[in-house]
Amino acid sequence: MLSFINSFISQTITYAVVYTLTSLGIVISGRAGIFNVAAEGIMLASASIGFIVSFLTQNAILGFIAGMIMGGIFGFILAYIHESFKVNQFILGISLVILGTGLSDLMYKLIIGVKLTAPRAPKTPLIKIPFISEIPIIQAFLNQDVIVYFLYFVILFAWWFYYRTKIGLETRAIGENPKAADVVGVNVVKRRYLSTIIGSMLIGISGAYLPIVITGTYMPDISAGRGFMAVGIAIFASWKPQRAILGGFLFAAIEVIAFRLQVISQNIPYQFFLMLPFISVLIIMMIFKKQIEYPASVGKPYSRE
């Protein structure tokens, strides 16, 4: 039983990395007023480049860095087109999803090509804390790869940044009322660029995590809608970083449960279980509709004149 719980938690955490990092990335840009619905596309493009780099260099960390850079590029494009041409954030986001989807397969086919046996990603380094990492249950949380530890750090940092520093307060102000931030001398455009790029970098790392850690190899449409689910999590979390982790773990657990049920049940078509996480998003959104808060200006362009 204990080993079952351990493996369940451990597997959940692996998936939670994807959900939480992505939704955290969305929360970070949303706090500055940019609604990043391009997450799915960013994840796909980063998954592809991340896998390619890690496979060619046989170094997982370099793969994550490549994914992060790809995310940053997408973030820059998003911020640039929105801030310079005031293009609607949702239309722009969806366009970037399509761009990312196309780009991901294109890059893979150009660089890796078609192989008979799927190429494998190199192992991601694990971090073990002596003694503590051997205690049951806790083991599941602390016997993990570097990205999991990175996630713990980012969550703590994000919370500290937004609620304990002045620039965090200012960034939140932009998401609530950009004019208010502008008139007290905060550079709204610069902060929006930074937030969108940093947020998209996190989404990029999460995208690279899919082929490098979760599947071990690249396949088309590897993110399978998780980028859109992460948008749901960001909303469910009321755009609070500390709550994004809750949502991330919740959906990861649902996915793992669905995955396990799929293995043990024979009569129900497996597609039903694949659908479960998506249905849960709808149900959870309906239940928590009243509790959800938005930064008042998320999704709205800002210009002085």
Binding site: K166, L169, E170, R172, E176, A181, V184, A296
Partner: peptide
């Protein structure tokens, strides 16, 4: 031009 979600102190120290 105050941020409605913030209190007076937060609004006043914003951006200094």
């Amino acid at each position: 031009t105050l941020v409605p979600q913030f209190n007076a102190i937060e609004n006043i120290i914003l951006g200094t």
